[in-house]
Design a protein around this nucleic acid. Structure first.
Length: 296
DNA sequence: TTGCTGTCCGGCTTATATCC
DNA sequence: GGATATAAGCCGGACAGCAA
């Protein structure tokens, strides 16, 4: 069994189309067909169900694909580890963050100190972040969701109040605090379902006796700020996010009832996947950054 | 017409045998 | 032990045939 065969299998399995896979791999379709057949022969069972000219990954193929993907991930991690050992890896970090308000400062400061590091950032719903973390597709995750598991490390960074932000012409503008029940008829702007902060704030409202009317659902927390300024609704915002955008949303209300409307932001990483030296440095940088914020 | 499989062939790699 | 020759096996392209 060869890595080339596994690479070809992975492509055919993903596309479930021999010709398209051959095109993607830059080889002739018959060659690909033969390579897959040889792989199936060497394993001893078919990996695809053939119906006429259609091919579909079967149960054997699905199980095998998971292993193949793990092999390629292991190889990639091995490469990173060896490059780190040799001091040749300039560093790449893949980060998922469900809070974007601190990213400009966090990334800016880190990249100033580590200009050769390449960072990729994802913004994904909680379940997707968990999946990516388990698969080793991301190194670190700054999350308000308690992403826990036997192979996950979760370090709480900061617990903070949740504020309600209203437009300057809103009936509640100028008040210091509000009861959640006073907001049951209000139109909300929020993250779409699937994001933990949305789940948390929905649960707070349900606990107060109403289902929030979320009229606008978004993926981007920063887009919430823009719509708030247009007066299109009100929104829940964590304290730190408000502090970073206070000039754009001055009318913040404390939630007086129920008490204890807080959210905890934490740092998540996988204990089973290799973490590059650059990612380890960034992890410590994030921890230091939040400790600095806490002490200010 | 489109898409897959099978056959044939040339090129390449690897294993084995032989020679120096 | 190292260099060279040979055989076997695999890969990939071209082409033909078959099925939907």
């Amino acid at each position: 069994m060869e890595l080339l065969q596994l690479q070809y299998f992975q492509t055919v399995a993903k596309l479930e189309h021999m010709s398209k896979a051959a095109e993607a791999l830059n080889i002739a379709q018959p060659s690909l067909s033969k390579t897959i057949s040889r792989l199936e022969s060497s394993i001893g069972v078919p990996l695809f169900d053939r119906h006429g000219r259609n091919i579909r990954l079967n149960a054997f193929g699905k199980a095998f694909l998971q292993r193949v993907e793990r092999i390629f991930r292991e190889l990639e991690e091995g490469k990173r580890e060896v490059l780190d050992m040799a001091g040749l890896n300039r560093g790449s970090i893949t980060l998922a963050a469900s809070i974007t308000s601190v990213l400009p400062e966090l990334l800016g400061d880190f990249l100033t100190a580590n200009p050769n590091v390449h960072i990729r950032q994802f913004l994904e719903p909680t379940a997707e972040m968990r999946r990516m973390m388990e698969n080793g597709e991301i190194d670190l995750c700054i999350s308000t969701a308690p992403v826990e598991g036997p192979d996950m490390a979760w370090l709480p960074l900061r617990t903070e109040e949740i504020f309600v932000i209203v437009h300057e012409r809103h009936r509640l503008a100028g008040q210091e605090s509000v009861k959640l029940t006073d907001l049951k008829e209000e139109p909300f702007i929020g993250l779409r379902p699937g994001y933990w902060f949305r789940t948390l704030t929905d649960e707070l409202c349900i606990g107060a006796g109403f289902v929030p009317k979320t009229m606008i659902e978004l993926d981007e927390a920063d887009a919430v700020v823009l719509l708030l300024r247009k007066g299109l609704g009100i929104a829940f915002v964590p304290q730190l996010a408000w502090e970073k955008r206070a000039a754009f949303m001055p009318n913040r209300l404390r939630i007086a009832d129920p008490p204890g409307c807080v959210v905890t932001t934490g740092l998540v990483w996988s204990k089973k996947h290799y973490m590059s030296v650059a990612a380890q440095r960034f992890r410590q940088f994030i921890i230091d950054y939040f400790q600095r914020i806490e002490s200010e």
